[in-house]
Every structure is written in C-alpha cells, then in structure tokens.
C-alpha cells in the first residue's frame, strides 16, 4: 500500500495534476473568483476541445519520436475546404470527408518527405505548413468563408444541459479511443517502442515507416477536425484559422508528460497538459493581460515544458545507469 502510494506520488501524472491545481488556485485568487465561475468553466471546456484534437495528433507523433509543425497550416486548410464545399452545396458529411482527405494528403506528403527523402522532420513540415497555408488562401481568395450548416453549427455552439459543450464531449470520446488504442492494442504499444528505439523496433519485426505514415496522416486529420470544430463554433472559416497553433499542440502534449524524444507518455497526461495550457491562457485573459502577453507566455510555457521534460529524461537515464 505504501509502495503503491509512493509510486503514485513519484509519477509524472501526479506532479502535473498538482501543478494544474496550483495554477487554478493562484488564478482563482488573482481573478477574484472569476476563474471558476459557471460561465468561465464553460468557455474553458469549449477551448479545450480544439486543443485536445491537436494534442492527440501531435502527441501520438511525439511518442513515436517525430514532430509535425505543419498542423497549424493543415488545420487552416481543412476547415477552409469544408466551408468551401458546404458553400458549394454539398451535405456536411461529404464536405467533411473531402476536407479530411485533403488534409490526409498533406500528412502523406509529410510522411513521404520524412521517410523516403530523409528530410529532417521539422523543416519538411515547416515547408508543408506554408504550402497548406498558401493553398488555404488560394481557395478562399484571401477572404473568410461563411459556414452555415445547421448540423455543424449545432454541434459547434450548443451544450448538453447548457453546460458541457458537445465539442468537448466529442473531444473526450476521441481522447478515450486513442488512450485505448495506445494502451490495449499491438499498434499502440508499437508506437511507444518505435519512439523509444526505432532501430531496435525494426529488428524486432515492427515497421517504423508504416507506423510513421499512419501517425502523420492521423495528425493531419486531427488538425482538420480541430480546425473544423472551431470553424463550426464561429460559423466562418478564417484565413488565420489555426495557424501558429502547432505549438499549442506540442506544448500541451509535452506539458502532459509526453517526452519530446519519444517513447513515453499517455493520453491521461496529455489531458492534464491540455487543461494546464487552457486554464493558464484563460486566466491571463481574466487577469486582463493583452493577447500579446499570451503569445510571450506560450513560448515561455513551451520552454518550461521542454526543460521539465529534459530533467525527467535525465532522471530516467540516471536511474537506468544506477540500476545496472
């Protein structure tokens, strides 16, 4: 029992949850009780859903030892295609499938560049970011496209019991599905193995390239869904879209204990990371800081997350050496 308790308090998840609680308490006091008001919790839940999808896609890739910096661009392209198709008169599910396919192609392009041309991941995906962002501009002619579809707008704006947004429910269902894939299926286990040691996993009979293809396409589709949810809420596909939010996904995932080098992490941690990020951003608004301070803080948070990840990794290495 004692050992079990000890293990729990030593775990990353415990530290992160503690951090989340500390942040909530501090800002609850600073914002004079506005943070935990009914209306504000509702709006935090709303913004959590978009970031969740980004963090799932990005987190899975990070676990396998890759990154994708094109998610912002792809997440702008997807909803733009969606809104364009709906404006052209297609039913929403057909439009959504077309949007998902176009984003999947971007992911495929990333995977091809990384796996067959050996481009460094981050620079290949930066190139894809500007390609997809540019195509989004070309589709819309540089303007925002209105998206008026009863079904999508219902999902995007309505809430269960006037409290839990439907988008949040969808995001949580997706998170649980991915958590199960990661923990219970052979494919999920192999992702962590590939991230831990790609060469060893190849020798053990896994196919790292195939896994990386699936994860890149998956990340792009997740970005498309994230963008579409946002677009369904504000009823327009904007050219700014999700651009820049690839960092949000990475930050949330790393804050949630998914290591930058790959090989460790889980979806529960990611959820805590997502909440830390969103509560923090929301609280800064409540305290009355301009959005530019948020930009600065998002960079600082990413650095903090990275440094924390580095320290944990060093500890892990240290333990591995002393265990021998």
């Amino acid at each position: 029992m004692k050992a079990k308790l000890r293990r729990m308090t030593n775990s990353k998840l415990f530290t992160l949850t503690l951090l989340l609680i500390v942040i909530i308490v501090i800002f609850e006091i600073l914002s004079k009780g506005k943070l935990l008001s009914f209306k504000n919790i509702r709006s935090i839940l709303q913004s959590v859903s978009v970031v969740t999808f980004l963090a799932i896609g990005c987190g899975m890739l990070l676990m396998s030892g890759n990154t994708d910096l094109s998610l912002g661009g792809v997440g702008t392209l997807g909803p733009m295609v969606l809104a364009f198709c709906i404006a052209a008169g297609l039913p929403w599910y057909v439009a959504l499938i077309i949007a998902l396919i176009s984003c999947a192609l971007c992911g495929l392009g990333n995977a091809l560049m990384v796996n067959y041309l050996n481009f460094p991941t981050f620079i290949a995906t930066i190139a894809m970011a500007s390609i997809s962002q540019g195509i989004a501009y070309l589709i819309s002619g540089g303007k925002n496209i209105d998206m008026k579809d009863p079904t999508l707008n219902f999902i995007g704006t309505k809430r269960l019991f006037d409290f839990i947004p439907y988008t949040f429910i969808i995001a949580m269902v997706a998170l649980v599905i991915y958590a199960i894939i990661l923990r219970k299926t052979k494919f999920g286990r192999s992702i962590l193995l590939v991230g831990g040691n790609a060469e060893a996993s190849r020798l053990a009979g896994l196919k790292p390239k195939k896994i990386s293809f699936i994860l890149f396409v998956n990340a792009s589709c997740m970005a498309c869904l994230a963008g579409s949810l946002m677009c369904a809420r504000v009823k327009t596909a904007t050219t700014a879209g999700l651009s820049g939010s690839q960092f949000t996904g990475i930050t949330a995932a790393i804050l949630g204990g998914i290591s930058f080098g790959g090989g460790t992490g889980g979806m529960m941690g990611a959820l805590v990371g997502i909440f830390i990020l969103n509560v923090f951003n929301n609280a800064m608004q409540l305290v009355g800081l301009s959005s530019y301070y948020q930009t600065v803080m998002s960079g600082v948070l990413l650095l903090v997350a990275l440094i924390y990840d580095k320290i944990m990794e060093n500890n892990r290495m240290h333990r591995a050496i002393t265990a021998k």
Partner: peptide, 26 residues
C-alpha cells in the same frame, strides 16, 4: 538553452519565436 540546458536548437528557437513576437507587439 541549447548548450547548458541541453534542448534541441530548433524547438527552443521555435519557443523563442513566440516570446520575441509577443514582446515586439507589447
């Protein structure tokens, strides 16, 4: 960040992008 903390150059400079960009606007 790169040599003392041991982070990778590209990701720490990406974080600095947000920091500098925000500071510029402020």
């Amino acid at each position: 960040l790169v040599n003392k903390v041991g982070l990778m150059g590209f990701i720490s400079s990406m974080a600095m992008i947000s920091v500098y960009n925000g500071l510029d606007y402020i």
